[in-house]
């Protein structure tokens, strides 16, 4: 059992096995994003209240979902790294943090732009928006903390602990629209209810969410491989690889 875990955690093994997956992940994400974009922008019917401004949902919701999923990944990686000392988990966390920060920024930006025509304001200090802003600060804090130590291991531990503390923000974001009065509408997708919008509207949204997830998988895998090259740059196998490709 432990042999398998440590093999899975071996950077060299991961580098070799993940290579063939990348072209598939990239192509799948591009195909899904193109279909979702054309469908959402041109073919989905306009909302009867919000008109065409509602088309922002097709980038806003996927970015917000990814912002939170990415933080959950950071927390899982933190546990794996702190408990079992598996470095690969720390490498994935290193590259996932900037991705999550970018998605949080996109969710906040698109939400603000959407707020102007629908709410009449680009910002309100309500629970959903404030907890998302805190998520952005948590991401930035994790990135800064990791870089603030001269020893890589200390930085990794500090960043992992902050990720574990910050994960309490995720349920707050999720239930913020139920616990407090808010301008923000409740979740579009849920496992127990039918979406409150017709299929022509939520199907393209589902395609976009899947496209964002595939893109997330592709980017994080690709950059984890970069991180492996960076940290193992003095090993024999990386040197041979660098000579082969240049």
């Amino acid at each position: 059992m432990w042999q398998i875990v440590h093999k899975l955690g071996s950077p060299k093994w991961f580098y070799r096995v993940s290579g063939p997956w990348l072209p598939w992940l990239w192509s799948l994400s591009v195909v899904l994003l193109v279909i979702g974009t054309v469908w959402g922008l041109a073919f989905a019917p306009a909302d009867y209240q919000q008109g065409d401004s509602f088309r922002i949902i097709y980038v806003h919701v996927p970015a917000a979902i990814l912002a939170q999923s990415c933080f959950a990944l950071l927390a899982i990686c933190a546990v794996i790294f702190l408990v079992w000392r598996i470095k690969l988990a720390d490498m994935a966390a290193t590259v996932a943090a900037p991705f999550g920060a970018a998605m949080t920024f996109v969710a906040l930006f698109t939400g603000s732009v959407w707020g102007i025509p629908t709410w009449g304001t680009w910002w309100v200090w309500d629970a959903r928006l404030t907890s998302m802003l805190i998520l952005l600060f948590l991401y930035l804090g994790i990135i800064a903390l990791r870089g603030a130590f001269t020893s890589r291991d200390s930085g990794s531990r500090a960043a992992s602990i902050l990720a574990l503390v910050g994960v309490i923000n995720l349920p707050i974001i999720k239930y913020s629209v139920n616990w407090w009065n808010t301008l923000h509408q409740p979740a579009t997708f849920s496992l127990t209810r039918q979406p409150a919008m017709p299929a022509e509207m939520w199907l393209p949204l589902l395609v976009m969410v899947l496209g964002f997830y595939m893109f997330f998988a592709a980017t994080v895998t690709f950059r984890t491989r970069n991180e492996i090259l960076r940290r193992e740059s003095r090993t024999r196998w990386v040197r041979e690889l660098a000579e082969k490709t240049h």
């Binding site: 974009t37 922008l41 065409d52 922002i56 980038v59 998605m103 732009v113």
Partner: peptide, 23 residues
């Protein structure tokens, strides 16, 4: 976009632009 162009296009531009920059 029936008058919503100033909102829809910047939002989409920033979102897809962020993905492009990350890649």
């Amino acid at each position: 976009m029936h008058g919503y162009a100033p909102y829809v296009w910047p939002a989409w531009g920033v979102a897809l632009g962020a993905l492009a920059l990350l890649a």
